[in-house]
Design a protein around this nucleic acid. Sequence first.
RNA 1: GUGCCUGUAGCUUAGUAGGUUAAAGCGUCGGGUUGUGGCUCCGAAGAUCGAGGGUUCAAGUCCCUUCAGGCACCCCA
Length: 435
Amino acid sequence: MSLSKQPIKGARDFYPEDMRQREYIFAVWKEVCELFGYEAYDAPILEPTDLYLTKGSEEIINEQTYSFKDRGDRNLTVRTEMTPSVSRMVAARRQELAYPLRLYSIPQCWRYERMQRGRGREFYQLNVDLFGDESLNAEVEMIEISDTVLRKFGAKRSMYEIKLNSRKLIDGFLTDELKLDKTQADTIRRLIDRMHKMATPAFTAQVENTLSPTQRDDGALDKLLAFLKADSLEHLPGSVRSHQSVDDLKRLMRDLEGLNITNAVFDPTLMRGFDYYTDIAFEVFDTDPQNNRSMFGGGRYDGLVGAFGVDPIPTIGFAMGDITLQNFLRSHGLAKEIPSTTDVYLFSVGDTVDETMGVARELREMGVGVATDVTDRKPAKKIKNAVKMGVRYALIVGEDEVQNRQYTLKNLKSGTEGKYSTQRIVSIVEDYRAG
RNA sequence: GUGCCUGUAGCUUAGUAGGUUAAAGCGUCGGGUUGUGGCUCCGAAGAUCGAGGGUUCAAGUCCCUUCAGGCACCCCA
């Protein structure tokens, strides 16, 4: 029995061409975050299991994480997300950090899930968090960053839609208006989350089931349906239209419009897992009918830092996974060929091995990335190889070149070639890199 | 975790009602062209038919199990 050549279930190998895609995505993420003044941080990939238990949901820990006991008998869990870790870090230095605090990270996370398209067990995720700004400006900033990232990848605003909702609004409606208790509210919220997947009668039946007779007589179902039907803030029932959250959402949308972010819509059915979200949440959807799914989202979670026993800090953040993003880019034809990181494929022709290596060293000293090929293979093969690797230039060192110290540089994209000194080659490569 | 579908060379697939040496294209490698790729011609390598077990004189083809992938559910932190 030979060893398996496959990576473990749900995990990916990154060969150079995959790695280039990944590096490209990370580079865009990093660039945008840094444009907005966010700074990079990192945390261990292993955390105490307790860190994830604080949010409740024991089944998630048991069934959907990689958890184990280490040799010191500690219960550890491979991180499934970054938010608990960054909250822990901020809580630990609560007093000394400078606020508003802007942090980003691109961690690899692991979730023990059943495989499906766009959902593996291992993924990278951009995490962007803003601590210490309770104003709506923070919401605007989060969404503006999300929008900027997508547009840096070449996306048009028609390719995605930003759905907005407020947990405060929903909760206020469910408890004040419908008079539901907490358990009922949780159940209803979960139902709303799934309502697009259910037939309407099934949905209403289950809602009715949750309601008490008094609530039913009170017309709670109809009120709920009227609420959920609202496709804009103006269409909300009059009774909730004066809620503070409605004003917040209105202002948020007005601000976004001011930034030309016109693809943001209010959606009262948007729920987003919702365990630690406390107020406004948003989620970005792919508008392509082939891939019409949620790509990523975020929201305000003011309670998490305080869970570590320090004074709470208002916090908002979002996270974007690399797999869903790649699906989005592909479905809209935005995926790019990324050229090799090697500038020059340098090869010998004839008995010029020493000279070839010498030229390579000379170029490297001047900052050019050089891969050498001094095998006996035919020049045709060497060029083919360079093309396959995605290298832009082939550089040929044969007898003639050695004599004149002028080497044949071939642009593999255009097919043109000429003989140049190493100095000249460096500047040609630099020009190409510059764009 | 539940249900359904899929699994043949690196890739895409063909394989007759189960019958001897499993086929093709692309790709790979070599050669025509010993200093030049994306064209063309010739040739070669490459598959214990995902794996394990069973039925049968005989299984890629039927049955069971298992692994992997896809879809729906669950979940989506």
